[in-house]
Amino acid sequence: MEILMDSWPWYISGPMIALVMGMLIFVGKNFGMSSNLRTLCTICGAGRTTHFFRFDWKSQRWNLLVVLGAIIGGFIGAHLLSTTTDVAIHPEVIHELNTLGFNDAGSAYLPEKLFDTSVFGDGISLIFLIVGGFLVGFGARYAGGCTSGHAISGLSNFQLPSLIAVIGFFIGGLVMVHLLFPLLF
């Protein structure tokens, strides 16, 4: 039980993700989370203005159930399978984050600066969340997939396009963390 309650090591987590992909393949589906964002656009009526969203969203209902499950899984993971919220990141990273003003690095699951409910009254933090989310949604659809569809499903199937996308993910992430964070925080 203790093993379950602690944070899971990479050699358990990685194969578990492959297992999730495998289970979806064996029920005749595929592992890709960002396509749900498109489905949600369609449900909101985006098909009325844009051709890209004109498809039968009910054909994607299975994936929305996976999303619902992921929400429930998040609840179980955080509230039933965890006793603390600390994430044991590298001490040097904690130090760097402290200098950027993230004082809860190492002891929180998400930074208070961005994910405490007080951000609803904090314009700057809200803008960061909005811009971050927008880029994730826009970029994932432009690239035709996200971490699950490209980095896991695509690379497991040796797809060159997925390798290009993952290299892109890293260029973007490195630019954000190394060049933009010092200006933003």
């Binding site: 960002s34 899984g73 969340l129 994932a140 690239a143 996200c146 996308a165 973007g172 630019v175």
Partner: peptide, 24 residues
């Protein structure tokens, strides 16, 4: 893949969440 990937990566690092974990 390259342009979309870069935009995604910028957002992933800023928001710290990709489309699966977001829901979690």
């Amino acid at each position: 893949y390259m342009f979309g990937g870069i935009l995604f990566g910028l957002g992933w690092a800023l928001a710290g969440a990709c489309p699966g974990p977001m829901f979690t």
